[in-house]
Amino acid sequence: MNVRKAAVANQFYPGNPEDLSQQLEELFAPFKTEKKCRCIASITPHAGYIYSGSTAAEAFAKIDFEGFDSLLLMGPAHRVPLSGLAVPSSTMFATPMGNYPLATDLIKQLVATGFAIYDDNAHLNEHSLEVQIPFLQHLGVETPLIPVVVGWSSPRYVAKVIEFVASRSNTLVMVSSDLSHFHTYPEAKKIDQQTTDRILNMEADIQPEEACGCTAINGLLYWLKESGSSIQTVSQCNSGDTAGDKQRVVGYASYLVY
């Protein structure tokens, strides 16, 4: 068994399993009565839980995970330069709450067809995917995961990858992204609302300064354009609303696609 070890425990979320479970319980507590909805995709933030955890938890709480065969989780490369898409050679991703299974057969197919490459270095210290997994574990989700670190790629190419996976498995597409970075509170509010409006309109030209996961977001939006689907904002805030000062904030939002 080849396990990718947790890289950002004790940084983005607690490394102690009891403390992590307690924090997740508190994050999900306001949403316990949320009605579960059948959706085909989600976008959730990936900052430290004290900053964006509630925004992510509200979206996770609304998703009906039953019936999916795989979860395609796509997030940006923060740590290493990357062109194209990278998948891990591991069979499990570890968090303090235990090991989470990967959809190794589908991962092999992505590599065999040339849609992605094996690159464990791209995954080694990447937080954008890792921080999403404890939310799944807290909800008791065990659907195998396809973790993809997305480097420079065109929206059309990323959409082809999504379609490839979706055509072979009943798949929930999950994109990990924060919004704008390091503006003042009023500036960030304005920029992030403009970005949200464009996401809701499925405009597949979001820029890196507007959302760090823009490449995956644009690919998802390109894939959705002709689908007849609709996107709804679940929650939106920034670090000035949660645990940071208002002079240099990071924006967060979560969305669901129906």
Rank of each mutant, 00 (worst) to 15 (best):
M1Q: 12
N2L: 13
V3L: 08
A7S: 15
A9W: 06
A9M: 13
A9R: 15
N10Y: 15
Q11Y: 11
E25H: 11
P30M: 12
E34I: 03
R38T: 13
C39H: 07
I43D: 00
I43G: 01
P45Q: 03
H46L: 10
Y51K: 00
Y51C: 08
A57L: 01
F60W: 14
E66P: 00
M74Q: 04
M74Y: 01
M74T: 02
P76Q: 08
P76L: 05
P81H: 06
S83M: 12
V87E: 07
V87D: 06
P88W: 12
S89P: 04
S90G: 11
T95F: 02
M97F: 08
T104P: 01
D105G: 02
L110V: 07
A116Q: 11
D119R: 09
A122H: 08
S128W: 03
S128I: 05
P134G: 01
L136N: 03
H138R: 13
H138E: 13
G140H: 12
V141N: 07
V148A: 06
V148Q: 05
V150C: 11
W152Y: 08
V158I: 15
A159D: 05
A159I: 07
E163A: 15
R168G: 12
S169N: 09
F182P: 03
T184C: 03
E187W: 01
K189S: 09
K189W: 01
I191E: 05
Q193C: 09
Q194E: 15
T195Q: 05
T196H: 10
I199R: 03
M202V: 01
A211Q: 09
A211K: 09
L221V: 03
S227V: 04
S230Q: 13
T233M: 13
V234D: 05
C237W: 00
G240V: 07
T242V: 07
A243K: 04
G244I: 05
K246E: 14
V250H: 02
G251I: 00
G251Q: 04
A253H: 07
A253E: 08
